[in-house]
Computed example of a mutant assay.
Amino acid sequence: MPDPQFLETPQGRRIAYHLTAGDGPCVVFLGGLKSDMEGTKAVHLETWCAAKGRPFLRFDYSGHGQSSGTFEEGCIGDWAEDTAAAITTLTTGKVILVGSSMGGWQSLLFARAHPTRVAGLVTIAAAPDFTEDGYWANFTDDQKTALERDGQIAMPSDYMEPFIITKRMIDDGRSRLVLRDPLPLPFAVRCLQGTADSAVSTQTAVRLLNHANSPDMRLLLVKDADHRFSDGPCLGLIEQAVTDVIAAAA
């Protein structure tokens, strides 16, 4: 595996990335919370795009993987800035966004801010607004008090070790919500969601489907698929979804 390249963002963060050349709109993979660009889905899509001659970009948000900073320092807005810097600096023309979990939220934020840059969107267990509707809404009174008092709390996870959620992440997430106001997505959108996902519910996927305004938006529920959505059949479904949105943009 070659070493990553690095991008200095306008905010002074150092973002690690891999960029593969090709023809057509660049496929950009946006990973999940505390995930990195070496994950199964990102690497699989890179190999698949290379075989198809399509350009591909994967990168680590600040505080993730090989990029600068620590996770506890970051928030949704910081990672949106990282996403915008990576896409606007490293790609030209239209892009196809593939957002996994928190990356689904990031893809919606980028599409809302830069609608003319997006040719199509694929989400995988998208988690828009999760800091408000997932974390804050389910915190106990004791957790909310501890967050206000200490500025952070530790959260368990079904998919990784416990991690720190900061008051800054909650407060910043509240200013980045996408499911409260109109969400125009003027391109083809494919949403993939496993029914056995314990991190993001099918109700979240349906809420996004009902809320967004797109001329061609579809949700595929996959029975018994979990949040990772990275076994062989699921990877094939991601390939098909990317193929669909590229064809719709042609």
Results as ranks from 00 to 15, higher is better:
70 T>Q: 15
45 L>Y: 07
68 S>P: 02
51 A>G: 13
67 S>W: 10
68 S>W: 00
51 A>Q: 14
71 F>P: 00
72 E>V: 12
49 C>G: 01
43 V>H: 12
46 E>F: 13
45 L>V: 04
58 R>S: 06
66 Q>Y: 06
41 K>N: 06
48 W>E: 06
42 A>M: 06
63 G>S: 11
54 R>C: 12
48 W>Q: 01
62 S>W: 09
72 E>T: 08
68 S>D: 01
62 S>E: 12
56 F>P: 00
60 D>M: 05
46 E>I: 12
62 S>N: 09
45 L>E: 00
42 A>I: 04
50 A>T: 07
66 Q>N: 10
67 S>M: 09
61 Y>N: 00
54 R>W: 14
43 V>N: 11
53 G>K: 02
53 G>S: 10
57 L>W: 05
58 R>I: 05
63 G>W: 08
65 G>E: 09
52 K>N: 15
45 L>T: 05
72 E>M: 03
55 P>V: 11
45 L>G: 04
46 E>M: 14
71 F>L: 09
52 K>E: 15
55 P>S: 09
48 W>K: 00
64 H>I: 02
57 L>S: 02
52 K>C: 15
61 Y>G: 05
49 C>L: 07
61 Y>Q: 04
70 T>M: 15
64 H>W: 03
44 H>V: 13
58 R>M: 01
60 D>K: 05
41 K>C: 04
64 H>K: 02
58 R>D: 02
53 G>Y: 10
59 F>C: 03
45 L>P: 01
56 F>G: 05
69 G>S: 08
53 G>W: 11
70 T>Y: 13
42 A>D: 09
63 G>N: 11
62 S>Y: 07
43 V>L: 14
61 Y>R: 08
47 T>I: 12
64 H>R: 07
61 Y>M: 02
58 R>T: 00
70 T>W: 12
64 H>T: 01
54 R>Q: 12
57 L>E: 06
67 S>H: 12
67 S>K: 11
63 G>P: 03
67 S>R: 11
64 H>P: 03
42 A>L: 08
68 S>E: 00
57 L>Q: 02
41 K>V: 11
58 R>H: 00
66 Q>I: 04
70 T>N: 14
51 A>K: 15
44 H>R: 14
49 C>R: 00
56 F>V: 03
45 L>D: 08
72 E>I: 09
53 G>M: 09
67 S>T: 10
63 G>R: 08
69 G>W: 01
55 P>Q: 07
68 S>N: 03
45 L>C: 04
67 S>Y: 11
63 G>Y: 08
52 K>A: 15
64 H>C: 06
62 S>V: 07
57 L>F: 06
62 S>P: 08
60 D>S: 01
48 W>S: 02
46 E>P: 04
